[in-house]
Structures are given as C-alpha cells and as structure tokens.
Design a protein around this nucleic acid. Structure first.
Lengths: 115, 115
DNA sequence: GCGGCTACCTTGCTTGGCAAGGTAGCATGC
DNA sequence: GCATGCTACCTTGCCAAGCAAGGTAGCCGC
C-alpha cells in the first residue's frame, strides 16, 4: 500500500481534518465511520487511522461530547456532538482558515510585496 | 517565549509554507531573509527556524537552484530560483491546494452529504 | 578592533496524519 | 450453537514539518 504520510498533500491536510470534523458536527451529531466516509470522499483524510486519534484529542480537550447509541443494523456507535467550547473553537478555526487562505491567495496572485 | 508550534494555526500551516515559497520564487529570485519577511508578514511562518530547513529540503529535492551574490550593504546572500522540476512541483501544489480549499469550502457550507 | 547589524544555518522538541493491526458486537446461514 | 462476514471502535509506531533557541560569520561605522 502506498504510504501517503510522506506526500505534500498529507502535510497540507494537517489541522484541516480537525477543523472539518468540528464543522461537520456543527450541523448534527455523527459517529466515527460516518466522519471517515465524508472526509475521505472529499480527500481530507486517508482512513480511520487519522480520525480516531483526532476524535480522542477533541474529547480530551472537551470540544466534543459523546453518546453511545444502539444501531439497528450492527454494533453500537459512539456519536459525537459539539460542546460549548467546541463551538467557540470552530469559530476560531474559521477565522484562522479564512486568514490563511486569503494569505495564500495573495502570495499566489503576486501580492507578496508591500504596498 | 510563547511556543507557537503547539497551536492549531501552526498545524494548518504545514505544507503551505513550502508551496508559498515556490510560488514566490516563481515571480523572481529571492534570498532567505527576504522570504522570511514576506511570509511572516502574511502570517504563514513564525520565523527563520521554519524557512532554512525548508529551503534545504527544496535544494536537496532539486526544486530550487541557488546562487551566492554579494550584497551592497552586508554579508553575501544565497539567492533561490525555481528549477524546471520546481515549476512542475509548483503546478502540482496549485492543483492540490485548489482541491483542498474547495473541499473545505464544501464541508463548511454543509455540502458534506452526497447528492 | 569592537559593537551592532545582516544573513546564514543547526539542534531538539512537538504535533498531527498515516498504515497496519487488533478487539468486539451483531446478523446470517447452516 | 457456532462459523463467517460485516460494522464499528481503538492503539501502536513511524514520519514529516513548524518552531524556539542558539550558533557562526561577513560587513560597516566608529
């Protein structure tokens, strides 16, 4: 299997996965495999090995709260939802991301010089 | 001194600095301190500790070529310019970045669901 | 020749993504 | 009841990149 951890893309993804998980949870509760599906489809993560450590971090930091729920078709799922701190963190992420992408836009547009 | 390497911003910056350096060199030759100034001003790096290891990597990978030039006001400078491979890498970065930021846009816009 | 400035580079640490591997609940078929 | 396959969760060990701090050395004015 190709190791993607060494690619430039994997480096650019750093930090973004966390932001996107929070953004997705802003819409509604979701469980792990569901997040893996959405983020993989958009090319934002490469598999489960990214998401579970990430979710553990968010839980430890108190940005999400979780609830075990039974599934009608398989084993129980742990659902993740934003906490109040999580909402605040999401807003901060949104600002940082906006600033960052605007900076990149300027650099690429040749507006790297002052004035 | 505050260690910024632990902040989410520092994580989101990963990979972007490299892309932006290449993009800046696409315009014209530049030297290290000049790159530090431009990228710091845009909030894309935190200092020299990022740029010199990065430039060494680019040199090792053959994406840039360097020329020592005397300065009229101080010690000699090492100027960096894109190689042919560097041009190709820049284009690949541009595509990756466009895809990535579009994905994030969709996630945030609530287009995380298929269909 | 000394202090300050410019410019280059290195070291050691931290973080986050990743592949691979592992555990266990649940449904189905026999 | 139990073997198989699927779903869902989680852990381990590695690697790449940003960073703070510290170091070297050329150049200039005095």
């Amino acid at each position: 299997m190709v190791t993607d951890g060494r690619s430039p893309l994997a480096q650019m993804r750093k930090g973004l996965a966390e932001y996107c998980v929070l953004a997705l949870l802003g819409g509604r509760e979701r469980y792990g495999v569901e997040l893996v599906e959405v983020l993989s489809r958009h090319g934002l993560i490469a598999g489960e090995g990214t998401i579970y450590p990430l979710l553990s971090r968010l839980r430890r930091q108190g940005l999400v709260v979780t609830t075990w729920r039974e599934s009608e078709v398989g084993p129980p799922r742990r659902y993740y939802a934003l906490s109040a701190d999580g909402v605040v963190a999401t807003e901060r992420f949104a600002r940082d991301w906006a600033a960052l992408s605007e900076s990149v836009r300027k650099i690429i547009a040749g507006e790297g010089e002052p004035g």
